[in-house]
Amino acid sequence: MSSGPLRDPANRVSPKARGLWLLEALIGFVLLIGGSILVGGWVGGSGWSWVPDWFAARPWALPVAVGVLTTPFLVAEPFVRYRVHRWELSGDVLYARQGFLTREWVFVPVSRIQTVDKEQGWLERMLGLATLEVRTASHAGSSTIKGLDYLVAAGLAEGLAQRAEQLRDDAT
């Protein structure tokens, strides 16, 4: 929906977020390859009748195939995400866009915010990043902004919490 009437949110996340996504994708990649090596070895060495001979002879084919299929995603994900993930706070509405293959646009008016959290996983701490979680009474109206610079996230969380208190609207 690039050509729609919606404009892009103004702010990108921290450039260091690319490193975060790459590290996370690498961890997933290593687990996936490790798992497929185990499965390939197990199935190839099992001697089951339905296993084709060419596969039994080359149990490494499975992890190689998995690697070839997933590597493009692994490489592309951080850059695509960095292009997609953006956020903006204006007119007392938080507007955030995120996603890789599936994209999401979220609009959360500050008056409906119930809690504002900022979180740091160990990877994020290493990179000086933080995740902002904005919750309303509905999961569909809640937003998670990942990969913000820690100071930006802290300032935004503080500002949102204060403003939400001023605007508190309890229709829900």
């Binding site: 599936t102 994209r103 646009w105 609009f107 008016p109 409906r112 509905s138 109206g141």
Partner: peptide
């Protein structure tokens, strides 16, 4: 309380 637009590939 908010809107969420979601678009798969």
């Amino acid at each position: 309380v908010g809107w969420r637009l979601r678009q798969t590939w």
